[in-house]
Amino acid sequence: MADYDTAIFDVDGTLVDTNYHHALAWFRAFRRHDLTVPVWRLHRAIGMGGDHVVPAVAGDDVEQRLGEQLRADWAEEFAPLLDEIQPFEGVRELLEDVRRRGFTLVLASSGKAEHVDHYLGLFGGAELAEAWTTSADVEQTKPEPDLLRAALEKVGGRSAVLVGDSVWDFEAGGRLGVPGYGLRTGGFAVDELREAGALEVFESPAQLHERLDETALAKSARS
């Protein structure tokens, strides 16, 4: 395996169980404008940044007319759901082990800063990661690679391996030349994640941790 010095972990849907909360909040935001986008279709777009979701599920015309308002409505609908969100089992143990193996750990999120702070508090992410990103760090979010580039630049990493849960993570990684491993925690199928570029797919953070020695996260180039 190639040598990597940085481990980039997606946050939403990978470390914390948020994808279906996001889909429901988007559904409710669209309904404020008498637009009905099926929840399954919204789920398929989760993992993209909010700047891409509206045109992806409702078209460019809706984006032009209502995009900014829909994103504001989504934020209002998502806020009451925030306290329901929980980290996946084994997240902290996984991240601690990745650090022990010599990797610089950076968390890549396109979420709002207040949301990211909340998520990190659920598993002690601020203590474990060298840095993390929010929507304020980039102009374009996934599937554009800007977020991963910003994460790598924040820690001065030379080469990185990614862990994510959506096809959009691996599309972004592919554009930047960053390989990665998929988790099924976001609700995407194994074949979808592999076709998008995931080297291997695991059921959960806990299973990835159990099989870490089989991956490029077994040992850092710094070790």
Rank of each mutant, 00 (worst) to 15 (best):
R149K: 13
E153S: 05
L152Y: 00
E144C: 11
V138N: 07
A160Q: 12
G156W: 05
E139W: 03
E139Q: 06
A160C: 13
Q140L: 15
A136S: 08
L148Q: 04
L162K: 09
V138R: 03
S159N: 05
L152T: 06
A150P: 03
V155P: 10
L147Y: 13
E153K: 06
Q140N: 14
E153Q: 09
D137E: 12
L152W: 02
L152R: 10
V138S: 03
D137W: 14
G157A: 10
K142L: 01
L162Q: 06
A151K: 13
P145C: 11
L162T: 03
L147V: 15
P143T: 09
S159W: 08
A136D: 13
T141R: 15
V161D: 05
A136L: 09
E144Y: 15
L152V: 09
G157F: 08
D146C: 05
K142S: 07
L162D: 07
K154E: 10
G156T: 02
L147K: 11
K154W: 11
K154H: 10
S159A: 15
E153I: 03
P143M: 12
S159H: 12
L162N: 08
R158Y: 13
V155Q: 10
G164Q: 03
Q140K: 15
L152S: 02
V163R: 00
K142T: 05
K154L: 05
K142P: 11
R149H: 14
A136V: 06
V155R: 07
P145L: 13
R158L: 14
V163N: 00
A150I: 10
P143C: 07
R158E: 15
G156Y: 03
V138G: 07
E139A: 10
R158I: 14
T141V: 14
R149A: 14
V138P: 07
A136G: 01
G156Q: 09
D137N: 06
K154Y: 10
S159P: 05
E139L: 05
G157W: 08
Q140C: 13
E153D: 11
P145D: 13
R149Q: 12
A150G: 03
V155H: 03
P145N: 14
A151Q: 12
E153M: 05
G156H: 02
A150R: 12
V155M: 06
V161M: 04
T141Y: 14
A136I: 02
